[in-house]
């Protein structure tokens, strides 16, 4: 699980200064900011616009175009369940239903205890060992409902009480 600091203007500026000179810097910058803060905070938009000589609308347009960039902090763990064809062929839809039921959230939502944010994704490159799930940056294969429950339990147990 990544450390997720609250928004800090000077830290954000330092990240921007590290990346602004690279060609096509906006995506690498957004990734770096999200890595640090867990999401793209509202004050990041004018900061980026200013640094890259873009309008706020342009920056906002990029942030909203890409699935990856979040506007709010996620839970301690991000659970990505694959719902693309190869995983569908081995029960991805019923796995996703199970996950939604047991975590009591829909796609994009975070559990009330802040442990998990659920996302549906389209292919994790593990299509011969589906259903595939990624928790934070770790890929899991052949995830049936029981294996998912075990994974969820382990992750909750690892978290500080």
């Amino acid at each position: 699980m990544a450390e997720r600091s609250p928004w800090a203007e000077d830290r954000a500026r330092a990240i921007v200064d590290d990346h602004r000179a690279m060609p096509g810097a906006l995506l690498p910058l957004l990734h770096a900011l999200q890595e640090e803060f867990g999401c793209i905070d509202e004050p990041a938009v004018p900061l980026l616009a200013d640094a890259l000589n873009l309008s706020r609308a342009e920056v906002h347009g990029v942030v909203t175009f890409y699935q990856d960039f979040r506007r709010t902090r996620p839970g301690r763990h991000v659970v990505k369940v694959c719902r693309a064809e190869a995983c569908q062929a081995v029960g991805a839809e019923s796995l996703l239903d199970h996950v939604k039921r047991t975590l009591a959230v829909s796609e994009g939502e975070t559990t009330p205890d802040g442990a998990f944010t659920l996302e549906a994704v389209y292919c994790l490159g593990n299509c011969a060992l589906g259903p595939a799930v990624m928790i934070d940056d770790t890929l899991h294969g052949r995830v049936g409902p029981a294996r998912f429950d075990a994974l969820a339990k382990t992750h909750r147990a690892e978290d500080p009480a």
Binding site: L27, L30, H31, L52, Y66, D68, Y122
Partner: peptide, 18 residues
């Protein structure tokens, strides 16, 4: 950043340009 269309070559170039 999680967009299937960015596999299309010109969309990929747009994305690389930020």
């Amino acid at each position: 950043a999680g967009a299937y269309i960015c596999g299309e070559e010109t969309a990929m170039l747009e994305s690389l340009e930020g």
